[in-house]
């Protein structure tokens, strides 16, 4: 097996380059070009005016988690512990309880995700057999004043809505 070797030409040995000054002025001309362009018209800056202009979040973006529901509003989660077992960061903690609405036998009575532990790998979403946990909320900025605010409880997770339609989400490969 022969690998292709590309030999990069070594620069900096010619007299003009060893004088430094010529290359220095070339570099300064480049930076000054950028400076004067942006100075004369600052709409040409490559920036997003962030809090006012939000970035576009694609459907495959792994944002904050949510728990999905059936059409009648009952939760899809059956407390099988697959996500908790799979979680490499060990940020999910579930307590299972008995379920009386006739769909299955079990449902979570406690479902907490510690967002300070979470590494947003998406393994919980992949592991879930019921499509009950998704990361399609499009929320990328998670802030809070103390640690307890970063622990998402069952009601928090159920209250968050998805940011995309079912087709868009499915197109993402889920």
């Amino acid at each position: 097996m022969s690998t292709k070797v590309k030999i990069i030409e070594r620069k900096g040995d010619s007299l003009a380059e060893k004088l430094y000054l010529i290359e220095v002025f070339k570099g300064m001309a480049t930076t000054f070009g950028h400076f004067i362009r942006n100075f004369l018209d600052n709409s040409k800056l490559y920036i997003r005016h962030y809090p006012e202009v939000q970035p576009e979040i694609p459907a495959r973006w792994r944002g904050r988690h949510r728990l999905t529901t059936h059409e009648d509003g009952s939760m899809k989660c059956v407390a099988c512990y697959m996500c908790q077992t799979n979680c490499p960061a060990k940020c999910i903690s579930i307590d299972a309880g008995e379920r009386f609405d006739g769909r299955t036998e079990k449902m979570p009575v406690k479902f907490e995700i510690d967002l300070l532990e979470c590494i947003y790998c998406g393994y919980c979403v992949e592991a879930c057999p019921m499509d009950a946990i998704r990361m399609d909320t499009g929320i990328f900025s998670v802030t809070g004043n103390d640690r307890s605010q970063f622990v998402m409880t069952l009601s928090d997770l159920l209250a968050t809505k998805g940011a995309f339609t079912e087709e868009e989400y499915k197109k993402g490969g889920a």
């Binding site: 930076t31 950028h34 400076f35 100075f39 800056l45 920036i47």
Partner: peptide
């Protein structure tokens, strides 16, 4: 501000 403009930031 100068370095920001040189680097196309604001």
């Amino acid at each position: 501000r100068g370095c920001a403009f040189i680097q196309d930031r604001s």
